[in-house]
Simulated assay, not measured.
Amino acid sequence: MDLDGFVRDGYVVVRATFDPTTARECRDLIWESLAAQGIQEDDQTTWTRSCVSVDCPEAEPFAAAAASPALSAAYDELIGPGRWTRRKGVGGSVPVRFPSEDRGNAGYHIEGSWDSPDGYRVNVRSRARGLLALFLFSDVGDDDAPTRLVTGSHQHIARILAPYGETGVTSEEVESKWRPSILCRRTAHATGRAGDVYLCHPFVVHTATWPHRGTTPRMMAQPAVHVRSGFTLDGTDTSPVAQAIMAGLSGTD
């Protein structure tokens, strides 16, 4: 695994973490969830919305995807053994993006880490969130509305968060504080085959893309990989997640 690339760019890709059969079974269950909203796989006239989110099912195929030894090894490398919380399934939501010219809910943002009365918050130690994972349950090409990652943006975000200490700030407020130039950085798209998983630094700026010019819906879960506590920023934490935050704090705009 390219740990230096993770610290620099804010993401790594673990290819083929689960097999095509498991991916197909996951898609079937996602379609069952969509059917409850009147959206049918074999009737494209029901694909009237550009994006429909469903809770990620907890059935066995998702448990198999989450239990991938390759993913566990990657979490150990990026966060540290024993520091991340195992879960039964994948977790999070599945925003299903349908072929459409509509922008939908696309917009640059970072993820919040914990809930509070004024919204999801995040702090410089990344309390509660170790990684943002992007589980591809369908093949995703350049025309399939892939998620766009702003490389290196995580280090810039660390400098924004630093003055807020343990209390942190809402993820929406963070968006109002970054300089527009951050969006001029190099970008990468989360493309690949079903079974690939992108592991992103929790501070990476990202967005859904549009239009979706493909022919099939894009299915991807985007759970947090939880940590029992945040990262230590006194130089003793050797995890790549902490190293990337430290690199950001030592840099300049």
Rank of each mutant, 00 (worst) to 15 (best):
E41P: 12
T151L: 15
L3N: 13
S50M: 10
G230W: 11
R97P: 02
W47N: 07
T151P: 13
S176Y: 11
V7D: 15
A16I: 01
H154E: 09
G91R: 08
M219F: 00
G130Y: 01
P69T: 11
G165T: 09
R148S: 06
G168D: 06
V225F: 03
L131C: 11
M1T: 13
L134Q: 15
A242Q: 02
T17L: 03
R159P: 05
A70R: 14
D118P: 13
F6A: 08
G112A: 14
T216F: 04
V96S: 09
G195R: 15
Q44V: 12
W84F: 03
T21G: 09
S153Y: 05
T215H: 06
W210G: 00
L71S: 05
A65V: 05
G168A: 12
P211A: 09
L161M: 11
V13D: 03
T209W: 13
T48E: 10
L71A: 01
V204M: 10
H226K: 10
Y198V: 04
S100I: 01
T151S: 11
T21P: 00
S50K: 07
C200M: 15
Y11T: 14
F137E: 06
L183W: 14
S53H: 09
Q40E: 15
P57W: 07
W84Q: 02
L132R: 14
A35D: 08
E101P: 07
E58Q: 12
